[in-house]
């Protein structure tokens, strides 16, 4: 399970909890974490968040599955985050 502080965003703690519950491993019902976000931000926000999480489950697999390179225009951000995108294992 990932660790770290919740982001300084509205409903940050609830967004982290839902992402980690739904997005770690296999698709499974994140009932408790979904309800926390519904209670905090409303059902529309929770549904929207689930859509974003689901689509990045797709994009992560598509990009890793084809051996996609990091787009050159994002290289400066990668360097800032501490890794060289030209030396990722692939």
């Amino acid at each position: 399970m990932a660790t770290g502080a919740a982001p300084d965003l509205p409903f940050g703690a609830e967004l982290v909890a839902l992402t980690d519950a739904l997005g770690s491993g296999a698709p499974s019902d994140p009932a408790a974490e979904r309800q926390r976000l519904v209670d905090a931000a409303g059902p529309e926000a929770a549904e929207r968040a689930i859509g974003v999480i689901a689509t990045f489950q797709m994009m992560n697999r598509a990009l890793d599955g084809v051996g996609a390179p990091v787009n050159p225009h994002l290289h400066p951000f990668a360097i800032e985050l501490g890794f060289d995108p030209n030396h990722l294992p692939r």
């Binding site: 990932a2 982001p7 965003l9 509205p10 409903f11 940050g12 967004l15 982290v16 992402t19 980690d20 997005g23 770690s24 968040a49 974003v52 999480i53 990045f56 489950q57 994009m59 992560n60 697999r61 990009l63 890793d64 996609a68 390179p69 990091v70 787009n71 990668a78 890794f83 995108p85 990722l88």
Partner: peptide
Amino acid sequence: TKSQIEFLASRSSYLNECFY
């Protein structure tokens, strides 16, 4: 917000160890 959306995207990618 876009910040919340991008946080969800980046956290999901982090969990999957996807750098792209």
